[in-house]
Design a protein around this nucleic acid. Structure first.
Lengths: 341, 341
DNA sequence: CTGAAAGCGCTAACAC
DNA sequence: GTGTTAGCGCTTTCAG
């Protein structure tokens, strides 16, 4: 099986010879350029197949300054979130023959924007995927708009006029979830807000207030705690909320990690969920199916968003600059009517 | 700030001119080649710094057939495991100026080995990181040994004579954890085994038996359930174990996801953990700190292993072909003496 | 110890 | 429609 000879990769030259055309023609069909007769294109394609030709990415990149690399830029949103983004992006990459490069970074570093730009230039990236909070980093967006590397912002919260966007309507989603809780009969609903730097998550608080207003309830700011996206911050916020003299009968956390933290805080106080207190999360990350009880949560289609983001990048002419994906409430076991044994 | 001119990247030529040497000399210092006088090296380094020179990876790759890309090859071990591997690998990559490429695949596909080889060749990868179960895929290892792309197997279970390895002593670790439970006073300890295709995890069952034998207890196969690494499989195994006429007083799951599943099964039966039954996991993934109660688990330094793996690849001459990292029991709240209120 | 010349495999301008 | 000629920015021979 294994030949002792070095496996020489086949090149355009050999394909050209096999097909009886010039290398430029081969290059043309490779890049789907116009001005090729159907007849020659078929010949070339056949030759490529026969020789099992695989274009050399490095050569391509050097000559064209474009690669098949997509860079996923993130600053450690929750691991659960990240892994979902990766899954979605990877699926789409496979589909479109891209490779995915990981680029973690610190969004508070003064040089992030410049660092990212440089990394993108060095790898001649075909596009960038920005996850929150980087999708709202003005300095970065501005530099990106100056250059010509396409990029897509995932779940952005600040508007912009250039650049691709893929998101959901966080505000409506949070409103619907709150309405769901209200529909169950809850009247005092605690809210654990997301990290202040993550814009889209701020929208969730607005949605919560919308639902309250729409139902004629007054907003009580003691029922809102500022979380930081982490499990630990969820535990802390949950504790404070559950210590309140007038304890909320339900708590809505702006992401699943924090909801799991609230669950923990409830258990630690000997409270049963959902009998004594209902808890709901947001995102439908894997974690939400691995807690006791399983979390009722809001499926923000993270994976689908990442998939769509890559497709936006892949499309020569994106249908729309901004795409908004739907959401749905995933009812599991952590919420019920108040006071129900 | 933003110049309207295209930013021309500086090249070796300019550095060479600046330093008053030939481009070959610049190339030499770039690649740490020997035979350079300290004096010229300093001159060149200064010129590179002054011009803020950044070598072009594509050009380098094309000329040398080596890149700065490391490929992480995996077939979806648990998300929690994967994310830890990524963190560790990424840390080391930053340190050694590598970039990380993700390469998910299906280890049961007949063509995996060939696919991986091809991807590695296309990207001219500087090295491969194989996670279980791919780290034990004979067909792949054989092809890799034939070629000259360095690779490192993470937590391999089958021996080999070539190739780098980084792992822990799973058998001893599992033995120690079992001994810990035994030390707490447990006598009937259930075991949820890992996926049969994941070799290293099989070692954990051996360790469990070692501890039993060493303590003069007889092995009871009814206490062993075959899991599949997933939370759901943990729930199923937990249910069966907890339904036993002689219910085990402690359950040791071969990974954290399954341990979380056992926790779920216990709660579902109204059992308190650890009062009614102790549960311990393995891996110390993020999940183990996010359950109720928090899982006592075994810290297999996944992150450190991945870090070490990249360092092995980075080192021109690895100190040792196989590196074994230590482990430790992380005592949290899910295990206590049996029958203790 | 250093340099000149020749590509790596592909795409970009232009010709035809 | 198609081919020719140059490079992209770097590493490799191989001389000195």
């Amino acid at each position: 099986m294994a030949s002792s000879e070095e496996k020489r990769a086949v090149t355009v030259n050999e394909v050209a010879a096999e097909a009886g055309v010039s290398i430029k023609t081969v290059s043309r069909v490779l890049n789907n350029e116009p001005n090729i007769s159907e007849k020659t294109r078929v010949k070339v394609v056949a030759a490529m197949a026969a020789l099992k030709y695989q274009p050399n990415p490095a050569a391509r990149r050097l000559a064209s300054k474009r690669s098949d690399l997509l860079m996923l830029v993130y600053d450690n949103p929750s691991d659960n979130y990240l892994i979902n983004v990766q899954h979605g992006a990877l699926d789409a990459c496979k589909q479109h023959f891209y490779s995915l490069l990981l680029h973690p970074c610190d969004y508070r570093a003064p040089s992030v924007a410049a660092d990212i730009m440089q990394a993108a230039r060095l790898h001649a990236c075909a596009g960038l995927l920005l996850t929150p909070p980087l999708s709202d980093l003005r300095a970065l967006i501005d530099m990106l708009d100056q250059g010509d590397t396409p990029y897509v912002r995932l779940a952005p919260s600040t508007p912009s006029i250039k650049g691709l966007e893929v998101g959901t309507d966080d505000r409506s989603a949070a409103r619907d979830m709150t309405l769901y809780l209200l529909g169950l009969g809850h009247r005092r609903i605690g809210f654990v807000a997301g990290h202040p730097d993550h814009g889209a998550v701020g929208e969730r608080l607005h949605g919560y207030r919308d639902a309250l207003g729409q139902s004629g309830l007054v907003f009580d700011e003691r029922l809102v705690e500022q979380g930081l996206h982490s499990f630990e911050s969820g535990v802390a916020c949950g504790q404070r909320l559950l210590e309140l003299a007038e304890r909320p009968s339900a708590i809505f956390a702006a992401n699943d990690d924090m909801a799991a933290g609230v669950l923990y805080a409830a258990h630690a106080r000997g409270l049963r969920v959902p009998e004594d207190v209902s808890v709901v999360g947001y995102d439908d990350t894997p974690l939400s199916g691995q807690t006791w009880p399983k979390l009722t949560t809001l499926r923000q289609p993270i994976r689908a968003m990442a998939y769509a983001a890559v497709e936006q990048l892949a499309a020569r002419e994106p249908q729309a600059r901004v795409r908004t994906l739907g959401y749905e409430i995933v009812v599991r076991d952590s919420a019920s009517a108040p006071g129900q044994g």
